[in-house]
Simulated assay, not measured.
Amino acid sequence: MIDIREADPTSDALRPVVEAHFAHSETAGPAESNHTMDASALAGPGMRFWALYEGNKVLGCGALKALPDGTAEVKSVHILATARGRGLARVMMTHLADHARVEGTSALVLETGADHLSYYDAARRLYEALGYSYCGPIYGYEADPNSAFMRLDLKPAE
């Protein structure tokens, strides 16, 4: 059974998934375009972090960063390589959207690799399938040829 729990990204139990995400991002594009947060940043002010478990085994993670414009940035969605292909990234992304909607967030935004960085093809296809649309640079970013920015407007929870 899959379970998503709010968690501390600096904990020893979550170190492998956070480090795997950081390592994955470091190899995906140029260093100047890498906006991956380390565990201490993921535990910082305005951040909410969740771990995805199957039983007691951590399989992935995801986070939201509250932004001053009423949106939240999706950060550090990662599924361990051994658990990929099961739709778990979609499960995490849906969890983040549901949580943000309940909290009254107006939209989710994200930065990912641009279309010439094929490393991010699967991620962009998932975001598109979930209803995200491409947009200009989001809060805190500047235009970057290695970045694609996306937005999902959220309707209030009923």
Rank of each mutant, 00 (worst) to 15 (best):
Y127L: 02
G44S: 08
G29R: 11
L152Y: 03
E73S: 05
R125E: 09
A66W: 09
N146K: 05
T112N: 05
F22I: 13
T36Y: 03
D98P: 00
W50M: 05
K155Y: 01
R124S: 05
K57D: 13
H99L: 07
V18A: 07
A129V: 00
Y139W: 15
L126I: 01
V91R: 14
R84T: 14
G136T: 04
K57S: 13
A51S: 11
D153P: 08
A28G: 06
A148Q: 15
A39E: 03
G55T: 13
T82L: 09
R5C: 12
S11K: 09
A107P: 02
F22T: 12
E103K: 11
R125D: 12
L126D: 07
L52Y: 06
G104K: 00
P45I: 02
L96K: 00
G46E: 01
T27C: 08
T36E: 15
L42E: 10
A129T: 00
P9V: 03
L154S: 03
R151W: 01
T105Q: 00
M92C: 08
E19N: 06
M92K: 01
R90S: 06
E6K: 12
A41Q: 15
D38W: 07
A39I: 02
E6G: 00
A23K: 10
Y120P: 03
S118Y: 15
V74P: 04
I4Q: 11
R84A: 00
G136K: 02
S40K: 07
R84G: 04
I138N: 00
E111I: 08
G113Y: 14
L152V: 04
K75V: 10
N34K: 09
V109T: 04
K65R: 12
T82A: 13
S106Y: 00
T94G: 09
A100L: 06
D12Y: 04
H24M: 13
E103G: 01
E19F: 01
A63L: 04
A83L: 14
A20Q: 09
G60E: 13
L42K: 08
A100S: 03
A122D: 11
V91H: 10
I4R: 02
C135S: 03
N56D: 14
S33K: 09
R101S: 01
L59D: 11
S33H: 15
D115F: 14
N56I: 06
A107E: 01
A100V: 00
L14Q: 10
M37G: 00
A23L: 14
M150H: 02
H99D: 11
S118F: 11
L130H: 02
A39Q: 05
H21I: 10
Y134C: 07
E142I: 06
N34P: 15
A7K: 07
L110M: 07
R48M: 03
G131I: 09
H95M: 04
L130F: 00
H95G: 04
R90Q: 05
K155C: 06
P30T: 03
A72F: 01
D12C: 07
C135D: 02
C135E: 08
L67T: 06
K75D: 08
Y119F: 15
A41P: 07
G113L: 10
R15E: 10
E142G: 15
G140T: 04
E142V: 12
D115C: 14
A20L: 07
A39P: 01
Y120K: 09
L108M: 03
V91W: 08
R15Q: 13
H95L: 04
A129R: 09
